[in-house]
């Protein structure tokens, strides 16, 4: 009888804590973290929701480079000396399912974990 009560308390505790954690996790303000990779190597992660002032930085690759502009909630390649400039033409990235990619410089900017849109993948 006593053992049963202990089990009841343990299971109830586990379920209550799980439920509480779920509520906390799902109601926390979502971060919008993007990761910047160069040739597969993670260079840095930026939480776009916490950018106070716009800033730029350069990512160099061989003789070339991409200039990244970061603003609150969004990021883009503002300049690149690559031949096709698709990364610049991409425009602003808000953390959706379609990463920003510079093929010649093997640069990728993509969302970490949760994405800002509801899509599993984006074509185009």
């Amino acid at each position: 009888m006593i053992k049963t009560k202990i089990w009841v308390i343990v299971i109830s505790l586990i379920l209550t804590v799980s439920a509480a954690l779920s509520v906390i996790i799902f109601t926390l303000p979502k971060k919008n973290v993007v990761a910047i990779y160069s040739d597969g190597e993670l260079l840095r992660e930026i939480d776009l929701s916490e950018v106070a002032e716009p800033y730029t930085f350069k990512v160099e690759h061989g003789d070339g480079f991409n200039e990244i502009l970061v603003e609150r909630g969004r990021i883009r390649v503002s300049f690149a000396d690559c031949p096709d400039r698709c990364c610049v033409n991409y425009g602003w990235y808000y953390g959706g399912a379609s990463p920003v990619v510079c093929i010649p410089h093997k640069l990728v900017i993509k969302a970490v974990n949760s994405q800002k849109d509801d899509f599993d993948v984006v074509t185009g």
Binding site: R76, N89, G96, A97, F119, V121, T123, G124
Partner: peptide, 18 residues
Amino acid sequence: DWNVGIKSPFGDGKAFCG
């Protein structure tokens, strides 16, 4: 089903439709 977004061709960096 998988939710496939179609990128906006108007340069705003978002999906236009899905």
